[in-house]
């Protein structure tokens, strides 16, 4: 029983590191096509990048917007009255800003994109693999990593920080409106509090986290997609594994980076 358990843990650990190694190789391959490709006659496909930015990023805006409005409302509604009761309403904007900018906006934007990008990219690539479309690219002397994955990589890594900034702005604007009209906090002092609390370090840290989330999400999604074998059922399984892996990775990485930042 014990040896079985250790065996199971050992196998899972080996498989985990094999996946991490393969994902790293895929990452290097993508970086090669971004930074070296244009010098060896393979310019970046900006038209495809913009199309992917629209597909993977801009179309996520309604979801991110709704989430941010809800987030800004919930935080101010919970924190505001408590701080007012303790007679320290001046700390409300600072706390809301730190929560939103440093933690909640990058984390939740990452989680939302993990679901949306993870499912979309893995399902698309997985279907292309099972329908022999990726093989068709290879036999036409077209590099699948360069043609399919590089535009998705650039689009995700650029759009996730952009969406995080939008989430910050929408969340803080919502909290400002609720604080002013719902909790009777003075507009000007709340705004000054928000602007005073929002430091460059916070914004930089938030964007740094978003970029890391974007890299992890797109690499995991592409990896799961191109390693799909079989048919519709396997594409579904790969998509599910991709979304779960991306979401867990974003949550764990967020915790790790926040601890490192505060320590």
């Amino acid at each position: 029983m014990i040896s079985n358990t250790f065996g199971w843990i050992g196998r899972k650990t080996i498989r985990f590191f094999a996946h991490v190694t393969n994902i790293s190789y895929l990452g290097w391959d993508i970086l090669y096509w971004i930074f070296v490709g244009p010098w060896v006659g393979r310019p970046l496909r900006w038209r495809n990048v913009i199309q992917e930015m629209d597909d993977l990023g801009a179309r996520s805006f309604p979801l991110i917007g709704t989430m941010s409005v809800s987030l800004g409302t919930v935080i101010i509604v919970i924190i505001g009255p408590q701080f007012q009761a303790f007679g320290i309403p001046d700390y409300v904007p600072e706390l809301v800003t730190v929560f939103l900018v440093r933690e909640l906006s990058p984390l939740l934007t990452g989680v939302v994109l993990a679901g949306r990008v993870g499912s979309m990219v893995t399902a698309r690539l997985g279907t292309m693999v099972t329908d022999d479309e990726v093989l068709a690219l290879e036999v036409m002397a077209i590099e699948p990593v360069e043609y399919l994955m590089v535009p998705k990589f650039i689009a995700t890594v650029v759009m996730l920080p952009c969406l995080t900034i939008l989430a910050d702005l929408i969340g803080m604007t919502t909290s400002l409106i609720i604080a002013t009209f719902g909790l009777d906090l003075p507009f000007q002092s709340y705004l000054d509090g928000v602007l005073g609390a929002c430091t460059l370090t916070d914004v930089t840290f938030s964007l740094f986290k978003s970029v890391i989330f974007g890299i992890v999400i797109i690499l995991v999604s592409c990896y799961q997609g191109v390693n799909t074998e079989g048919g519709a059922e396997e594409v579904g399984s790969a998509t599910m594994v991709s979304v779960v892996t991306c979401t867990i990775s974003v949550i764990l990485l967020n915790g790790f980076m926040t601890i490192m930042f505060y320590l």
Binding site: D131, D132, E133, L135, A136, V139, A141
Partner: peptide, 13 residues
């Protein structure tokens, strides 16, 4: 590969 063409069973379009 540029000297070769392949027609796949399900066309792979």
């Amino acid at each position: 590969r540029r000297k070769m063409g392949v027609l796949f069973q399900q066309a792979a379009l």
